[in-house]
């Protein structure tokens, strides 16, 4: 067992975990943050993506010990109370989800993409950078539309600050 302490969605959490505990299991089973999903066993689908110190990583391919001391943001940590994050709002408005299984990972990856590219984002870049996120329902069209819409909303929000 290892004692760990990290910040999850702004709150410090600590605990004793088996050394083999993956970050995704820590989030889901220890913290009941079940918004982060497990879609594959091969590190390929991206349903489990969360931010670790601001970088979008696969929580199924990270031991919780590796992020001891880090700051983690999950899908539950994006909204401000009842106010959805612009990316979440854009997914709702553009019908960017069907079953919703891939959506938390899509949104966490998408926020990271917009943060890296800002206003320069175009459709080809979004499609290319979402390579690590698999969706079995939507055909991606409305996901890409949502991300581009949110990129606009996020840069306007930033400009207003």
């Amino acid at each position: 067992m290892t004692a760990i302490s990290l910040t999850v969605n702004g709150k410090v959490v600590s605990g004793n975990v088996e050394d083999r505990t993956l970050l995704v299991h820590f989030l889901r089973d220890h913290l009941n943050l079940t918004g982060t999903h497990v879609g594959c066993d091969t590190s390929q689908c991206g349903a489990c993506v969360v931010h670790v110190d601001g970088r979008a990583v696969k929580s199924c391919t990270t031991l919780v010990g590796q992020v001891d001391g880090a700051s983690v943001t999950t899908i539950e940590g994006l909204s401000q109370g009842d106010q959805l994050h612009p990316m979440q709002a854009a997914f709702r408005d553009n019908h960017g989800l069907q079953c919703g299984y891939c959506t938390p990972g899509m949104i966490m990856s998408a926020v990271d993409i917009v943060q890296r590219h800002g206003g320069k984002l175009d459709e080809a870049t979004v499609r290319h950078e979402l390579e690590g996120n698999i969706c079995r329902c939507t055909g991606y069209h409305n996901i890409v539309k949502s991300v581009l819409d949110a990129a606009g909303r996020m840069s306007t929000a930033q400009a207003a600050e």
């Binding site: 979008a56 990583v57 990856s109």
Partner: peptide
């Protein structure tokens, strides 16, 4: 290499 999440780690 891989995708953005793989490249971060």
């Amino acid at each position: 290499i891989g995708d953005p999440a793989v490249r971060y780690r």
